[in-house]
Amino acid sequence: MTEYKLVVVGAGGVGKSALTIQLIQNHFVDEYDPTIEDSYRKQVVIDGETCLLDILDTAGQEEYSAMRDQYMRTGEGFLCVFAINNTKSFEDIHHYREQIKRVKDSEDVPMVLVGNKCDLPSRTVDTKQAQDLARSYGIPFIETSAKTRQGVDDAFYTLVREIRKHKEKMSKDGKKKKKKSKTKCVIM
Protein backbone atom coordinates (compact mmCIF):
# COMPACT_ATOMS: atom_id res chain seq x y z
CA MET A 1 0.00 0.00 0.00
CA THR A 2 1.38 3.38 -1.01
CA GLU A 3 1.77 5.99 1.72
CA TYR A 4 1.43 9.69 0.95
CA LYS A 5 2.85 12.38 3.24
CA LEU A 6 0.53 15.37 3.00
CA VAL A 7 1.12 18.66 4.78
CA VAL A 8 -1.63 21.23 5.43
CA VAL A 9 -0.27 24.79 5.54
CA GLY A 10 -1.81 28.24 5.84
CA ALA A 11 -2.32 31.16 8.19
CA GLY A 12 -3.80 30.75 11.67
CA GLY A 13 -7.57 30.36 11.82
CA VAL A 14 -8.20 29.39 8.17
CA GLY A 15 -9.55 25.94 9.10
CA LYS A 16 -6.61 23.61 8.49
CA SER A 17 -7.45 21.44 11.51
CA ALA A 18 -11.19 21.55 10.78
CA LEU A 19 -10.56 20.30 7.21
CA THR A 20 -8.25 17.53 8.41
CA ILE A 21 -10.58 16.37 11.20
CA GLN A 22 -13.54 16.46 8.81
CA LEU A 23 -11.63 14.14 6.44
CA ILE A 24 -10.39 11.79 9.18
CA GLN A 25 -13.31 11.70 11.63
CA ASN A 26 -16.26 13.01 9.60
CA HIS A 27 -17.16 15.76 12.01
CA PHE A 28 -16.81 19.53 12.23
CA VAL A 29 -14.87 21.16 15.04
CA ASP A 30 -16.14 24.70 15.44
CA GLU A 31 -14.12 25.88 18.45
CA TYR A 32 -10.75 27.40 17.58
CA ASP A 33 -7.82 25.80 19.35
CA PRO A 34 -4.53 26.86 17.73
CA THR A 35 -2.51 23.85 16.58
CA ILE A 36 1.18 23.40 17.23
CA GLU A 37 1.43 20.24 15.15
CA ASP A 38 -0.86 17.22 14.81
CA SER A 39 -0.46 14.10 12.72
CA TYR A 40 -3.29 11.94 11.37
CA ARG A 41 -3.41 8.74 9.33
CA LYS A 42 -6.25 7.39 7.24
CA GLN A 43 -6.56 4.55 4.75
CA VAL A 44 -8.58 5.50 1.67
CA VAL A 45 -9.18 4.27 -1.86
CA ILE A 46 -8.36 6.83 -4.56
CA ASP A 47 -8.93 5.86 -8.20
CA GLY A 48 -9.05 2.18 -7.25
CA GLU A 49 -5.76 2.27 -5.32
CA THR A 50 -5.79 1.70 -1.56
CA CYS A 51 -3.43 4.16 0.05
CA LEU A 52 -2.48 5.49 3.44
CA LEU A 53 -2.65 9.23 3.95
CA ASP A 54 -0.20 10.53 6.53
CA ILE A 55 -1.43 14.07 7.15
CA LEU A 56 0.48 16.70 9.08
CA ASP A 57 -1.71 19.53 10.34
CA THR A 58 0.59 22.46 11.01
CA ALA A 59 0.68 25.64 13.08
CA GLY A 60 -0.43 28.77 11.26
CA GLN A 61 0.71 31.10 14.02
CA GLU A 62 3.86 33.03 13.22
CA GLU A 63 5.54 32.06 16.52
CA TYR A 64 5.83 28.48 15.22
CA SER A 65 7.30 29.42 11.85
CA ALA A 66 10.72 27.99 12.80
CA MET A 67 9.18 24.50 12.71
CA ARG A 68 8.05 24.90 9.08
CA ASP A 69 11.30 23.98 7.34
CA GLN A 70 11.36 20.62 9.11
CA TYR A 71 7.87 19.48 8.09
CA MET A 72 8.26 20.94 4.61
CA ARG A 73 11.33 18.74 4.09
CA THR A 74 9.36 15.55 4.83
CA GLY A 75 6.12 16.41 3.00
CA GLU A 76 5.45 15.04 -0.49
CA GLY A 77 2.52 17.35 -1.21
CA PHE A 78 0.99 20.46 0.30
CA LEU A 79 -2.55 21.77 0.76
CA CYS A 80 -2.13 25.56 0.81
CA VAL A 81 -5.21 26.76 2.68
CA PHE A 82 -6.68 30.24 2.96
CA ALA A 83 -10.09 31.39 4.22
CA ILE A 84 -12.35 33.00 1.61
CA ASN A 85 -13.34 35.60 4.23
CA ASN A 86 -9.74 36.57 5.07
CA THR A 87 -7.79 38.44 2.38
CA LYS A 88 -4.56 38.42 4.43
CA SER A 89 -4.62 34.60 4.57
CA PHE A 90 -4.94 34.57 0.76
CA GLU A 91 -1.99 36.96 0.39
CA ASP A 92 0.06 34.76 2.77
CA ILE A 93 -0.21 31.80 0.36
CA HIS A 94 2.60 33.27 -1.75
CA HIS A 95 4.97 33.16 1.24
CA TYR A 96 4.08 29.55 2.08
CA ARG A 97 4.59 28.50 -1.53
CA GLU A 98 7.96 30.26 -1.78
CA GLN A 99 9.12 28.68 1.48
CA ILE A 100 8.06 25.20 0.29
CA LYS A 101 9.92 25.66 -3.01
CA ARG A 102 13.03 26.90 -1.17
CA VAL A 103 13.05 24.05 1.37
CA LYS A 104 12.34 21.40 -1.29
CA ASP A 105 14.86 23.10 -3.62
CA SER A 106 12.42 22.66 -6.50
CA GLU A 107 10.04 24.71 -8.62
CA ASP A 108 7.89 21.62 -9.12
CA VAL A 109 6.30 20.55 -5.82
CA PRO A 110 2.81 18.96 -5.70
CA MET A 111 0.38 21.52 -4.23
CA VAL A 112 -3.32 22.30 -4.19
CA LEU A 113 -4.70 25.76 -3.42
CA VAL A 114 -7.68 25.47 -1.06
CA GLY A 115 -10.20 28.24 -0.36
CA ASN A 116 -11.90 27.17 2.86
CA LYS A 117 -15.07 28.44 4.58
CA CYS A 118 -17.02 28.71 1.30
CA ASP A 119 -20.23 28.23 3.34
CA LEU A 120 -19.81 31.75 4.78
CA PRO A 121 -21.61 34.68 3.11
CA SER A 122 -18.88 37.20 4.02
CA ARG A 123 -16.49 36.46 1.14
CA THR A 124 -13.55 38.86 0.64
CA VAL A 125 -11.54 36.68 -1.77
CA ASP A 126 -13.25 36.25 -5.12
CA THR A 127 -13.28 32.75 -6.65
CA LYS A 128 -11.77 34.16 -9.85
CA GLN A 129 -8.86 35.70 -7.90
CA ALA A 130 -8.06 32.30 -6.40
CA GLN A 131 -8.46 30.51 -9.75
CA ASP A 132 -6.11 33.02 -11.37
CA LEU A 133 -3.51 32.54 -8.64
CA ALA A 134 -3.71 28.74 -8.91
CA ARG A 135 -3.42 28.96 -12.70
CA SER A 136 -0.33 31.18 -12.41
CA TYR A 137 1.21 28.57 -10.06
CA GLY A 138 0.13 25.69 -12.32
CA ILE A 139 -1.76 23.97 -9.49
CA PRO A 140 -5.41 22.96 -8.91
CA PHE A 141 -7.79 25.16 -6.89
CA ILE A 142 -10.64 23.76 -4.80
CA GLU A 143 -13.15 25.57 -2.62
CA THR A 144 -14.07 23.76 0.57
CA SER A 145 -16.21 24.02 3.65
CA ALA A 146 -15.03 22.02 6.64
CA LYS A 147 -18.46 22.75 8.15
CA THR A 148 -20.60 21.27 5.35
CA ARG A 149 -17.84 18.89 4.11
CA GLN A 150 -18.07 20.39 0.60
CA GLY A 151 -14.88 19.71 -1.35
CA VAL A 152 -13.01 18.16 1.60
CA ASP A 153 -12.37 14.73 0.06
CA ASP A 154 -11.76 16.37 -3.31
CA ALA A 155 -9.00 18.62 -1.90
CA PHE A 156 -7.03 15.80 -0.28
CA TYR A 157 -7.62 13.32 -3.12
CA THR A 158 -6.60 15.89 -5.74
CA LEU A 159 -3.35 16.39 -3.84
CA VAL A 160 -2.69 12.63 -3.92
CA ARG A 161 -3.28 12.68 -7.68
CA GLU A 162 -0.83 15.58 -8.02
CA ILE A 163 1.79 13.60 -6.07
CA ARG A 164 1.21 10.57 -8.32
CA LYS A 165 1.65 12.72 -11.45
CA HIS A 166 4.82 14.20 -9.99
CA LYS A 167 6.28 10.77 -9.14
CA GLU A 168 5.42 9.49 -12.61
CA LYS A 169 7.09 12.49 -14.22
CA MET A 170 10.18 12.10 -12.03
CA SER A 171 10.53 8.41 -12.86
CA LYS A 172 10.20 9.16 -16.60
CA ASP A 173 12.85 11.86 -16.28
CA GLY A 174 15.04 9.41 -14.37
CA LYS A 175 14.68 6.77 -17.11
CA LYS A 176 15.61 9.32 -19.78
CA LYS A 177 18.75 10.24 -17.85
CA LYS A 178 19.67 6.58 -17.37
CA LYS A 179 19.25 5.89 -21.10
CA LYS A 180 21.51 8.81 -21.94
CA SER A 181 24.19 7.67 -19.52
CA LYS A 182 24.40 4.23 -21.18
CA THR A 183 25.98 5.73 -24.30
CA LYS A 184 29.62 4.72 -24.36
CA CYS A 185 32.59 6.34 -25.93
CA VAL A 186 35.21 4.09 -27.53
CA ILE A 187 38.68 5.48 -28.12
CA MET A 188 40.86 3.55 -30.60
Rank of each mutant, 00 (worst) to 15 (best):
D54K: 15
Y40T: 00
A18G: 13
V14D: 09
V45C: 12
A18N: 15
K42G: 05
E37S: 15
K5E: 08
Y4K: 15
K16N: 06
V44R: 13
Q61R: 08
Y40I: 01
I36L: 04
E37C: 15
L52Q: 14
G10W: 01
T50D: 12
E63H: 06
Q43L: 07
I46F: 12
L6A: 06
T2Q: 14
K5I: 02
T50N: 12
D47L: 05
Y4T: 13
A59P: 04
S39F: 05
A11P: 10
T50R: 13
G15M: 04
A59Q: 02
V9F: 08
G12C: 10
G60P: 03
T58L: 03
T20H: 00
K5L: 02
D57P: 02
R41E: 09
L52S: 15
Q22F: 05
G48I: 06
D47S: 10
D38P: 03
V9K: 03
I55H: 05
Y40V: 02
G10T: 01
E49P: 09
D54V: 07
V8L: 09
K5A: 05
G48N: 10
A59C: 04
Q22M: 06
E62D: 13
N26M: 09
G13Y: 12
Q22N: 12
R41Q: 13
K16R: 04
Y32P: 04
D57V: 02
D38V: 03
Y40G: 02
V14R: 05
E49H: 12
L23M: 13
E49N: 11
D57A: 01
V29E: 07
Y64P: 04
Y64N: 05
L56K: 14
R41S: 08
D38G: 04
L56F: 07
Q61Y: 07
D54H: 14
L6H: 02
D30R: 09
V8R: 01
V14S: 12
V44E: 11
T58D: 00
I36M: 05
V8T: 07
D47N: 10
V14E: 10
L6I: 13
I24G: 07
P34F: 03
V44M: 11
V14Q: 11
Q25A: 15
L19Y: 07
V29S: 06
V29Q: 08
I24L: 15
Q61P: 07
A59R: 01
I21C: 08
L53Y: 08
V44A: 13
Y32S: 04
E62K: 07
H27I: 15
D57H: 04
G15I: 01
Y32G: 01
G12T: 10
D57S: 02
Y64S: 05
I36K: 00
I46D: 12
S17Q: 00
N26W: 07
R41P: 01
Q43H: 11
S17F: 01
L53V: 13
D57G: 02
Y4G: 14
I36S: 00
Y64E: 04
L19V: 13
I46P: 09
E62F: 06
L56H: 13
G13V: 11
I24F: 15
E3W: 07
S39A: 10
C51E: 09
E31W: 12
V44I: 12
Y64W: 05
V9G: 06
Y32L: 03
G13T: 12
S39W: 05
Q25N: 15
Y32A: 04
P34E: 05
